[in-house]
């Protein structure tokens, strides 16, 4: 009974508590990255996930050195980097890509220098770089759940302001929305999300986990609200499927989750053809600054 054997193989890991923990975290982390990714992609800041995860690696090294809690130290470090990127970008003379490149790589370089000088802190740097969901502790589950609840709460309660600020920041500002505060709030959610999901995705691949679901969702819809939940669902599916693949293929969870998303992207790209591609032209904040004449 080959079918029964295959089914048995598939459900076998579910008997292990560590796998169930890992699967739960990977699915929630995927959904969280998908949700945040919509704003990241539409603001033309796709590189920020990559940059911030590297910046947080600097915080990872520094927190070990100073002796503060990893999540607190790396979280504050990541948020500070995100706010700096946001502040530099708002001045408009420097684009977001350049701001991310300068600030986050400087932070990553500082982390590497600290590790070389003082040695690695308690956590395994390889796990931080590539993700190791099988070593997920119950504390990590609660952190991912807590950050997800926080992210959903922010996005639900500030949905309209976030949408207006993402679509048309100039007019949002003159319409009475404090866009600097909205941007800072989004950076806080983003930094917290990256920090919470880093153990699953790894520093090097988290950017793809943020960007890919949003890009796939954009190819499937022209509505912002639908893109938001589609991207979340796609992220969750990628986390769930990628985690199972990670177990069966004995590969780190980061690569399998990202490769699942990439395969989905290729399938949707082929299925939607030119229509999907024309929608993708909108996955950046294509606004020129309002020219004051």
């Amino acid at each position: 009974m080959t079918g029964a054997m295959a089914w048995g193989d598939l459900v076998h890991p579910f008997h292990f508590q560590f796998f169930r923990n890992g699967l739960l975290v990977a699915t929630i982390a995927g959904a969280l990255c998908g949700l945040i990714g919509v704003y990241v992609v539409l603001r033309g800041m796709s590189y920020i996930g990559h940059g911030l995860s590297h910046a947080i690696f600097g915080g990872f090294a520094a927190s070990g050195l100073v002796g503060v809690n990893f999540f607190l130290g790396a979280g504050v470090w990541g948020l500070a980097s995100a706010l700096m990127v946001s502040a530099v970008t708002r001045r408009k003379s420097i684009g977001s890509d350049a701001a991310i490149g300068v600030i986050t790589t400087a932070s990553f370089a500082l982390g590497l220098a600290l590790i070389q000088l003082y040695g690695s802190p308690g956590r395994n740097p390889d796990a931080a770089l590539f993700g190791n969901v099988l070593g997920v502790a119950s504390q990590d589950v609660w952190i991912v759940v807590g950050v997800s609840v926080f992210a959903v709460a922010v996005i639900v309660l500030r949905y309209r302001a976030l949408l207006f600020t993402t679509f048309d920041p100039e007019v949002a500002e003159v319409s009475g929305i404090n866009t600097a505060r909205v941007d800072a709030l989004l950076m806080l959610v983003l930094a917290a999300s990256i920090l919470a999901t880093m153990s699953v995705m790894g520093v090097t691949l988290i950017a793809a986990a943020i960007v890919v679901p949003a890009v796939v969702a954009r190819m499937l819809t022209d509505s912002f609200a639908r893109m938001l939940w589609l991207s979340t669902a796609i992220g969750a599916v990628c986390g769930f499927v990628g985690m199972n693949l990670s177990y069966h293929l004995d590969i780190a969870s980061g690569p399998t989750i990202v490769l699942t998303g990439s395969a989905l992207f290729a399938a949707v790209f082929a299925a939607t053809g030119l229509r999907g591609m024309s929608r993708l032209r909108g996955t950046r904040r294509g606004l020129e600054p309002l020219h004051l004449s």
Binding site: D222, S223, F224, R279, L290
Partner: peptide, 9 residues
């Protein structure tokens, strides 16, 4: 100045 490709109805 409008991003006409933004996913919005």
């Amino acid at each position: 100045t409008v991003n006409w490709s933004f996913p919005i109805t």
